[in-house]
Simulated assay, not measured.
Amino acid sequence: MVADWYAGLSGLEVEQVWVWSGWVRIVLFDPVPRAAGDPYLDLNDFQFIDAEGKEWDVRIEDDPRTAGPVLGLLRCRLSTAQTKDEVLTLVFDNGARIVGDLPL
């Protein structure tokens, strides 16, 4: 069920990126309104691989500045979202990726 929810986000555009104490929220725009509003992903410690292939360890709690490169996802589309062994992998249409533990 969880994997299906993530897979259902494929094709949606990143509309907002929020950073606050301990978390990054990626808000996706869904042209088909959902009862709960636009879907989002809350992530804490994860690896971000940018469109050029540079790897960034994002550790919001230790250093919120590490989230800066994630802003490059604005207006990108989520190509695929998959889960395996409690690890979430998000791939975006610009080639960037996020890999980290499934959010609780």
Rank of each mutant, 00 (worst) to 15 (best):
V2L: 15
V2W: 12
D4L: 14
Y6A: 11
Y6I: 13
G8P: 08
L9V: 08
S10H: 09
G11R: 12
L12R: 15
E13V: 14
V14P: 11
E15D: 09
Q16G: 06
W18Q: 10
V19C: 09
S21C: 01
S21W: 10
G22D: 02
W23Y: 11
W23C: 05
V24H: 03
V24T: 13
V24R: 04
R25K: 15
R25F: 11
I26D: 06
I26P: 07
V27W: 05
L28F: 14
F29C: 09
F29R: 12
F29L: 08
D30Y: 03
D30K: 07
D30N: 15
D30C: 07
P33Q: 15
R34C: 00
A36I: 01
G37M: 08
P39W: 02
Y40N: 06
L41E: 08
D42Q: 13
N44D: 11
N44A: 05
N44M: 05
N44P: 01
F46T: 02
F46A: 01
Q47F: 06
Q47M: 10
K54W: 01
E55M: 15
W56S: 10
W56G: 04
D57R: 15
V58L: 00
V58N: 02
R59C: 00
I60D: 03
I60A: 03
T66D: 02
A67H: 00
G68C: 03
L71T: 14
L73A: 08
R75W: 13
C76W: 02
C76T: 09
T80F: 04
T80L: 04
T80Y: 05
A81E: 08
T83E: 15
T83L: 13
D85A: 15
D85E: 13
E86C: 01
E86H: 10
E86I: 04
V87N: 00
L88P: 01
T89I: 06
T89P: 06
F92V: 08
N94A: 07
N94Y: 05
N94H: 05
G95A: 12
R97C: 13
R97M: 14
I98S: 06
V99H: 11
G100C: 09
G100Y: 03
G100A: 03
D101P: 11
D101V: 06
L102V: 10
L102A: 03
P103M: 13
L104M: 13
L104H: 15
